[in-house]
């Protein structure tokens, strides 16, 4: 089955992950900018990081027949440094012109501090001003509920924001309902311990349907595994759902959301029998 991995931190992963993903149906990954595990001191470090995910990483993926897209943003943790963040934000529009950049992401909140909220708002405004897609990270563990509510509150202040162009990620059972009600795209991130599991993601798909739903593995430098995505495919199929419905979730929906940016070349497909 063809699979699109819509949230994947390739720079933290090995070539073997690319190889095994390609062997198991992944044809495309999209890489949001994220926290490197330490707070960067210089705006230039971000710029070089953006160059890495827009210049080098596509060539690495291409060796395995995988198309690589990227997002640029200041992540919520480093948004705690607003001076540095503002300089990086000023440089982002140049990256929007790059052939594999799909939008602003992942922005969002971590501890929902005043600085984080300020830089998040600035990045939403940037996405609106430049007509970019928006990928929003929701906080971890016990901070998730409050942070998700705060994100929705901030987004409500943008009257010109089209919810169809916004993807709110790392959703769980206690945060999914208001996101669905507001009409945003919803993402489940599958991690071995935190966030969501394949079985819980499939439960939520069965409860809420799969319109505007996407599943990803994130896969970064922490405990994570890109193949939790294939686990979710298997879990969904084991429950008796059709291969077409699986394709809707794991391939067509990423095409529909990411394809709102004309640079994204993949189109939804239909499985037919001859």
């Amino acid at each position: 089955m063809l699979i699109i991995q819509p949230h994947y931190h390739a720079i933290a992963r090995t070539a073997q992950d690319y190889e095994r993903m390609a062997q198991s149906g992944v044809v495309c990954v999209a890489e949001p900018a994220f926290w490197a595990g330490f707070d960067r001191k210089y705006p230039e470090t971000f710029i070089d990081y953006f160059r890495q995910i827009t210049e080098f990483e596509p060539t690495r993926a291409a060796q395995y027949g995988i198309t690589h897209y990227a997002w640029v943003a200041v992540n919520p943790k480093e948004a705690e440094n607003p001076e540095l963040s503002r300089v990086v934000l000023d440089a982002m529009p140049e990256f929007f012109k790059r052939p594999n950049v799909l939008g602003v992401g992942e922005t969002g909140l971590h501890l929902s501090s005043k600085n984080e909220c300020e830089i998040f708002e600035a990045q939403v405004q940037l996405a609106v001003d430049y007509g970019q897609l928006l990928l929003i990270h929701t906080p971890h563990l016990h901070d998730k509920l409050f942070g998700t509510r705060k994100i929705l509150e901030i987004l409500a202040g943008f009257s010109s924001l089209d919810p169809d162009k916004v993807w709110i990620d790392h959703v769980e059972e206690h945060t999914i309902r208001p996101i669905r009600e507001k009409g945003f795209w919803t993402g489940f991130t599958l991690y071995p311990i935190t966030k969501c599991t394949a079985t819980r993601a499939c439960d939520m798909l069965e409860v809420y349907g799969w319109d505007r739903m996407m599943i990803n593995s994130s896969a970064d430098w922490g405990p994570s595994d890109p193949f939790t995505l294939q686990e979710a495919v298997l879990e969904f199929r084991r429950r008796g759902h059709s291969i077409q419905d699986a394709t809707e979730i794991f391939y067509n929906n990423p095409c529909r959301f990411l394809g709102q940016n004309p640079k994204f070349k993949f189109k939804p497909i239909k499985i037919v029998e001859e």
């Binding site: 016990h142 998730k144 409050f146 059972e173 206690h174 439960d203």
Partner: peptide
């Protein structure tokens, strides 16, 4: 059938700020 959501709400209490910052 909402046990998972109820457990997540319990674990949300871990952050004392959640008590202070009710919206």
């Amino acid at each position: 059938p909402n046990r998972t959501e109820r457990l997540l709400m319990i674990f949300t209490k871990l952050d004392p700020k959640n008590e202070e910052r009710k919206d």
